[in-house]
Design a protein around this nucleic acid. Structure first.
Lengths: 213, 213
DNA sequence: CACCTAATGCACTAACTAGTTACTTTCTTA
DNA sequence: TAAGAAAGTAACTAGTTAGTGCATTAGGTG
């Protein structure tokens, strides 16, 4: 008898997980419209029938992939525990995290782009998004207030505008890395270029939020 | 007899123009993959055969639409004649222009997104892009130098990073307006919201570039 | 062990889609 | 005005794609 646990020949959870992972890759690569259900099935080493069995249809699958992606980034942000750091350090950590997350999870960006092409009609139907989003905005709002109390941030900065700006300066650079590398005659993805951009982004946000020293 | 000039029954240039215009709309709405050649033909009030006759195939048509879009924004930027303004005013005008252009030409954003999903393989083949892009970067580079000479801008700001940032803070807000409106529980496209964002963007760039007063 | 339910596989279809073939109509010009 | 070039049309093809009907198989449970 093998001492490892006997490998199940049928495993619904594992199959579902493989489908979700394959779908994430395929949707990220080709968008909702360009993604092929057959490709997802093949990459998941599952029969196409399973996709319809577990997830209903292509659009429903996309919605779940998208929700998962949002929950993942919002969960990772909460784990930063910014409350335990001085405000300036916390803000820098958030800018750094956002950049690193986009860099390591390029599917997130492409999924969001695809969803916006479809006017967010899947996110609109989602219920989890409400909850995780609110917690996120509150976190940054709290951080700003604390910075003002510490005397390091200026008053009156809108947490939503700040959130959007932190995301924007990283997101735009990375989502447009292909056209950008052509327009600016520069390999935007070279290691030094990435370092330089992160430093620039931190500087941009600090100048925006901090009081003059 | 009708006193209007006899309507031309055949007009190659007009047909080409109608196809390009329809293609721009359709590609912007659905991306390269999602766009339908039949829809383009119908909207252009042209026979589908004409598209292949004048433009070769779907991808070639996309490339021309994309090139036209880039040439259009770069031409409009040159018309700003920023050289004739004090550096601070010129920079603010550029931020304002970029925002307004994206707002009035949302197809530009969607076309660029689609092109990046395809790793810029059409822009890579383009020859016009090189020329118009270089002129654009030089313009902002010159503006920065002039601001330093005037004593209003700090030294050492990279014109490419600045360009990217100016684009980013407008582009991200607008391209993600659908998901953003859900995540932030706020109608990002309400007139007051748009005004507020523009003001915030100008402030962000000024704090980034200007010397302390 | 026998039954039942959930997991899986195969082969199919109905609709769609980029691109083409073969043709007609209109305009220009020698 | 005749002829050829250019503009335009309709119907078709070959390949693709989301989704399904139905049969089969494995594993847990009484």
């Amino acid at each position: 008898m093998p001492d490892q646990p006997v490998k199940k020949q049928r495993d619904a959870e594992a199959t579902k997980a493989r489908i979700l992972s394959a779908a994430k890759k395929e949707f990220a690569k080709s968008g909702l419209g360009g993604a092929r259900v057959d490709v997802i099935a093949e990459r998941a080493k599952a029969n196409k029938r399973m996709i319809y069995h577990y997830f209903g249809n292509k659009e429903d699958l996309f919605q779940i992939v998208l929700e998962d992606a949002y929950v993942d980034i919002r969960t990772a942000e909460q784990k930063l525990e910014l409350e335990h750091l001085p405000a300036r350090e916390a803000l820098e950590k958030l800018v750094r995290f956002t950049w690193d997350y986009y860099l390591k999870n390029p599917e997130f960006i492409t999924l969001v782009n695809s969803e916006n092409l479809h006017k967010a009609r899947h996110l609109k139907k989602s219920e989890v998004i409400e909850v995780v989003s609110r917690r996120f905005v509150n976190m940054v709002g709290g951080l700003l207030d604390r910075g003002v109390a510490e005397g390091v941030f200026r008053k009156g900065v809108d947490p939503v505008q700040l959130n959007i700006t932190i995301a924007a300066i990283g997101y735009y650079y990375l989502t447009n890395r292909f056209t950008g590398s052509i327009v600016f005659h520069r390999d935007l993805m070279a290691p030094e270029a990435l370092e330089e951009r992160l430093a620039f982004n931190i500087d941009t946000i600090m100048r925006l939020v901090c009081v003059a020293p």
